[in-house]
């Protein structure tokens, strides 16, 4: 969970920084998308690095889900008889929605790839520039789409709030002197990612970016 999660967090940081290019211009955003595909050229063929990243991410997603399912199965096996009354003593909404939140994020991921990567469910269709798909996708008339992204991104943020410091604990790098910094750091990174990911869609829907 920790290692695959870390891979995905690093990806999210890059993804967010890339998205912000839309605030410069459509061309800047498109150029960035092209650059991702032409990186390493002429040393390696078109799309080499991007394909490697995609494979690593896909493997991470699968292993992360596999780990989550096996943890969940072990948990169910370890408590066959449920409590009649159970009260949580450790606060933390984020901690308790990791599994449902994870399912929500997977569902969103499928939609997100169909929408902005493959363009299948995007108004501009598959044959269009990335910037066109993004701006058309969050058009003010499609405010409900922005709402879906808002909920999904907040879910990702909550997932990371627990996930980031938890990864340090799992890998044995946490201790009592670091907990405060780790928890604050996790909350900070989550908040930055949520804001960074929501800025473009909100700006488009409210007509700031056209």
């Amino acid at each position: 969970m920790a290692v695959t999660g870390a891979v995905m967090v690093l990806f999210l940081v890059g993804h967010m920084l890339g998205n912000l290019k839309i605030f410069i211009s459509r061309d800047s955003f498109n150029d960035y998308a092209t650059a991702l595909r032409t990186l390493l050229e002429p040393l390696a063929p078109y799309r080499t690095l991007l394909t490697i990243v995609e494979v690593v991410l896909a493997v991470s997603v699968v292993l992360h889900i596999w780990a989550a399912i096996s943890l969940s199965r072990r948990a169910h096996a370890a408590r066959p008889v449920k409590y009649a009354a159970k009260k949580s003593q450790a606060g933390g909404y984020a901690t308790h929605i990791m599994r449902y939140g994870g399912v929500t994020i997977v569902l969103f991921l499928v939609w997100h790839l169909l929408d902005l990567t493959f363009g299948v469910v995007n108004p501009k269709g598959p044959v269009s520039t990335p910037a066109d798909r993004m701006i058309a996708g969050f058009d003010p008339s499609r405010w409900w789409m922005t709402l879906i992204y808002l909920v999904a991104v907040v879910m990702v943020g909550l997932h990371l709030r627990h996930g980031i410091w938890s990864a340090f604990q799992t890998l044995g790098w946490a201790n009592r002197n670091r907990y405060k910094a780790l928890r604050t750091g996790a909350a900070l990174v989550s908040a930055v990612l949520v804001i960074g990911f929501l800025a473009p869609p909100l700006a488009i829907t409210f007509g700031v970016v056209k």
Partner: peptide, 11 residues
């Protein structure tokens, strides 16, 4: 023994 795995809930 069949105990579950830790997910760092802190309970």
């Amino acid at each position: 023994e069949g105990f579950g795995g830790c997910t760092n809930t802190g309970e």
